[in-house]
């Protein structure tokens, strides 16, 4: 008994020491580069383009630079995200927009807004004011214009309602793009590494013989 006890303690000590050593190395190794990836997500609502920028950990990109290009890579406008990672701007041109996020220190992401999306907005933007004006001016001529106005009104009302309904959906889409790596991918990666160990061992072994 007495013989074994110090031995056992020594072992214990060594384990604790090794653990401490590991923690020491790893915690200083911690550093803090928190982000691996940034994402930018954009959608159109009315005549405004909304963008949301996030790091892969879910943290919002504060003061990231957003640059908007058209298809010919001409810079259209530029802005900075707020502390919620949001930045919005009026649709500048009726083309496909390429929205580039530069979050600093080598992080960059882009998002392309397809042409139809911008186009529907831009065309409505031009039509939209006219029915409102017409509406106010012409209560006296009744029959014909009213049906015309109604059609436009309906269209804009529907679009308004749709945007309202779709907003949470857009948000959800933006959220879902933010999911980190799945368990499958993590274990897949570890599996690859184990396979590579085997491969390397095989080649080294053959060379040895």
């Amino acid at each position: 008994m007495l013989k074994y006890k110090p031995n056992y303690q020594n072992k214990w000590k060594r384990t604790i020491f090794q653990l401490l050593l590991f923690l020491a190395v790893s915690f200083f190794a911690a550093g803090t580069a928190m982000a691996h990836k940034v994402m930018v997500f954009a959608w159109v609502e009315g005549d405004t383009v909304y963008t949301e920028s996030k790091f892969s950990g879910g943290k919002k990109v504060n003061k990231g630079r957003i640059i908007v290009y058209d298809q010919q890579e001409n810079r259209l406008l530029e802005g900075e995200t707020n502390e919620k990672g949001e930045f919005s701007f009026k649709v500048p041109e009726k083309t496909t927009l390429k929205i580039v996020l530069q979050a600093g220190m080598g992080h960059r992401a882009d998002w392309t807004l397809p042409i139809e999306e911008s186009e529907s907005v831009a065309s409505r933007q031009m039509e939209a004011p006219s029915p409102a004006v017409a509406d106010a001016e012409k209560p006296q001529h009744q029959v014909q214009p009213i049906s015309q106005i109604n059609a436009e009104d309906i269209q804009s009302a529907i679009e308004k309602a749709l945007h309202k309904e779709l907003k949470p959906l857009y948000k959800m889409l933006a959220e879902s793009r933010n999911q980190g790596p799945s368990v499958t991918e993590i274990f897949g990666g570890i599996g690859y590494i184990i396979g590579l160990i085997g491969l390397a061992a095989y080649f080294k072994y053959r060379r040895k013989n």
Partner: peptide, 25 residues
């Protein structure tokens, strides 16, 4: 494998979060 997984584990420290890099070890 440890290096591969380490960057996924975030420990919140203050306002930010920290993950192990492990390149020293």
């Amino acid at each position: 494998a440890a290096f591969f997984v380490a960057s996924l584990i975030h420990v919140p420290v203050g306002p930010s979060s920290v993950h192990l890099i492990l390149n020293g070890i």
